[in-house]
Design a binder for these strands. Structure first.
Length: 226
DNA sequence: CCAGACGTTGTT
DNA sequence: GTCTGG
DNA sequence: CCAGACGTTGTT
DNA sequence: GTCTGG
C-alpha cells in the first residue's frame, strides 16, 4: 500500500510535468521539499477544475460527503483499486472526483523480525510519479469544510513483491487525461488504468529507519541503509 | 421494512 | 489491543 | 504508514 | 448517500 511518500521535485518541474498551472500557496511562499508526507497532512494533488488540470492542496484521508464524523478519514488513506467502483465510501469519488497525486517516490515497510525496515521506490528516470487518487468535499454541520483524498492501490509488481504485496496505482504520463476525464461514462475506462506498474518503472533503495518517525523530515529520510 | 455500517493493511 | 496524531 | 498514548480529579 | 444484515 502507500502510507508515506516524498515530494522533492521543484515547483517548476512539477508544473512542467503535470501542466497544471500555479501551485496554490500564498504568494511568495515556495513549495517545500517534503521527504516524509504522512496521512492527515495536506498533500499536493492535480484535479480538473473548469475543464483543465489544476493543482490543489488536499488533506490525506478521504472523508465521504455523507460522513457524520470526519474522523472516518483516518481509515481512508488508501482505496483498493479492485473495489473502488462499488464501495460506498469511494464510489462517488471514483466516478466524479479522480485526481493525480504527484510524488517523487513512496515508502513501503517490510516486516523484518520485530522491526520495520523502510524501502523507497522512485521513478527509474528520475521523473515525478503520478499516483492515482480520489477526492471528496465534506461540509460539517457547523459549516466547516474539508477537501480530502485517498491513494488508490493495486497488487504489487515484481519490484515491490519482496517488500509488500500492495502498491499505489501509478498513472503513466500519456494517461493523465484519461484518468482525469470526468465526462459521462469515462469512469468505466478508468478501470483499465488500475493495474500494477511495469517491472522496470521503479527503482528501489533500502533506507534508514529515520523515516519511520512521522516527525522526521529532510534528506536524512532517504539515507541509504545497508 | 429499519438500523447500522460505510476501510485498508497485516496478522492470526 | 486499539486509538490518535503526524 | 509508524510512533506513542491509553485517565481522573483537583489544583496551579 | 447507499449498501448490508436482520
Amino acid at each position: 500500500m502507500c502510507g508515506r511518500f516524498a515530494l522533492t521535485h521543484s515547483a517548476e518541474d512539477l508544473a512542467r510535468w503535470f501542466g497544471a498551472g500555479e501551485i496554490p500557496l500564498a504568494p511568495g511562499l515556495a513549495l517545500p521539499l517534503r521527504y516524509n508526507i504522512a496521512p492527515s497532512q495536506p498533500l499536493l494533488a492535480v484535479r480538473v477544475e473548469h475543464g483543465s488540470p489544476r493543482f490543489a492542496l488536499l488533506r490525506w484521508g478521504l472523508v465521504p460527503s455523507w460522513a457524520k464524523d470526519p474522523a472516518m478519514g483516518q481509515h481512508m488513506i488508501n482505496a483498493r483499486g479492485e473495489t473502488v467502483a462499488v464501495k460506498p465510501a469511494f464510489k462517488n469519488a471514483y466516478r466524479h472526483h479522480r485526481c493525480l497525486i504527484p510524488a517523487s517516490g513512496f515508502y513501503e515497510w517490510a516486516h523484518e523480525g520485530k522491526g520495520r525496515q523502510p524501502y523507497y521506490f522512485s521513478g527509474n528516470r528520475g521523473t515525478p510519479l503520478a499516483m492515482a487518487g480520489l477526492w471528496e468535499h465534506w461540509l460539517g454541520p457547523d459549516g466547516s469544510e474539508m477537501e480530502t483524498c485517498a491513494i488508490v492501490t493495486t497488487q504489487a509488481n515484481k519490484t515491490l513483491k519482496p517488500i509488500h504485496d500492495r502498491m499505489p496505482v501509478l498513472i503513466p504520463r500519456e494517461r493523465f487525461a484519461a484518468w482525469l476525464d470526468h465526462s459521462p461514462g469515462a469512469w468505466t475506462h478508468a478501470a483499465e488504468l488500475l493495474v500494477p506498474s511495469p517491472e522496470d518503472a521503479l527503482v528501489k533503495i533500502k533506507v534508514s529507519t529515520y523515516v519511520n518517525h512521522p516527525a522526521h523530515e529532510g534528506p536524512a529520510c532517504l539515507a541509504p541503509a545497508k
